[in-house]
Amino acid sequence: MRPARANGWLAWPALALVALLVVPSTLMLVRLSLCQAARGAGFYLADSFTWDHFTRLVSPEGLPLVAFTVAFGLAVTAGVVPLAWLLAWPLRTSGGMGLILGLLALLAPRLAGMLGPLVALRVLLPRGVVSAWLAEIFLITPYAALVLLVHLRGIDWTVLQAARGLGARSWQAVARVGLPLAGPGLWLAGQLALGWGLGAFLGPDILAGPAGRTLATDLHHQAFDNSRWSMAAAEGVLLLVLVAAVYLVRPSGWTRGNHP
């Protein structure tokens, strides 16, 4: 008897959508990044080829921008993950009204979209990199907390009770059992935060200004202020590679509740 086949065909619409939306735009981005800039009107010089834009990004002139972007992304991740943990942990076993209220508190700030809260933060906070960092944490944390919460709610938490019964103090139970079991969820929340933090645009643009120049803000500047679309595309490609690398890295053997 043959085993029943998985319903892989259910993923086809999603794959088709990805193929339609992502593939053409990515190909165009790569093509733009490898062409010389247009002289006068137009986005790029047809039938040209150059590595210049990428060379500039890894030159002493471009590297600080890349380094700042990576550092900013890591800093945002370092802020988001602990906060996401603090928000998701109490909701891991709650149900009914407690869960509904918790999720509302988590997601309500997002109902105003991204830009709205940043306008308010722009008024509340002084202009600078730290404010941009706080703003990005504010934007990303609810999504990271949701990702973590989904993972945490799939775990049988009687293990914490078991740990207490075996003599562990509450902090020991969390450190020796809770955190390791939450590991994959924390990793995913961290990936989300880092992927988002690397591409940070709104926070640095609105709250940091020129001091908080990231790849994303510079990309916008190159394209729309300087009309250097090919340079912007090269920055876009680099961002894409960085974010893809973040999402593709995964410790081997991690499944829910099963750690190396």
């Binding site: 740990a163 059992v177 079991l181 750690h259």
Partner: peptide, 10 residues
């Protein structure tokens, strides 16, 4: 000893 044992899977 818990009903569902609650062994630490990690």
């Amino acid at each position: 000893v818990h009903q569902h044992l609650a062994l630490f899977p990690h």
